[in-house]
């Protein structure tokens, strides 16, 4: 999993493809930190699973996953207006 600073996304790559998850905590907007078991928010202590599911509050919503698409030149586009399920992958 790689962190992309500008769009504040975590990019996941596994055997089935590529996916993008928001790195912005759904509580009050801090950037969450990756940890061995998932993600932690440094501002108020919310924790999320590796799939972005809330484990402990104060956050009340999961970290959203975004639709990923590829351009003919190989560029990847994450559409921040289109949320998808955590299992969705862009297959290369």
């Amino acid at each position: 999993m790689t962190f992309l600073p500008e769009p504040r996304l975590y990019i996941l790559r596994d055997h089935s493809g590529i996916a993008a998850m928001s790195a912005i905590c759904t509580h009050l907007g801090c950037v969450v930190d990756k940890d061995t078991s998932g993600f932690l928010c440094p501002c108020h202590g919310s924790s999320f699973s590796i799939n972005g599911i809330v484990l402990t509050g104060p956050a009340l919503r999961n970290l959203p996953w975004y639709h990923v698409n590829g351009m003919p030149d190989g560029t990847l586009i994450a559409n921040l207006d289109k949320k998808v399920s955590p299992e969705t992958r862009f297959v290369i």
Binding site: I53, V54, L55, T56, G57, P58, L60, R61, N62
Partner: peptide, 16 residues
């Protein structure tokens, strides 16, 4: 005691 958060559940939001 921590109240588990069930995202998407209204009850969980109200309880928190």
């Amino acid at each position: 005691v921590t109240i588990p958060v069930k995202p998407g559940s209204d009850l969980s939001v109200v309880l928190t």
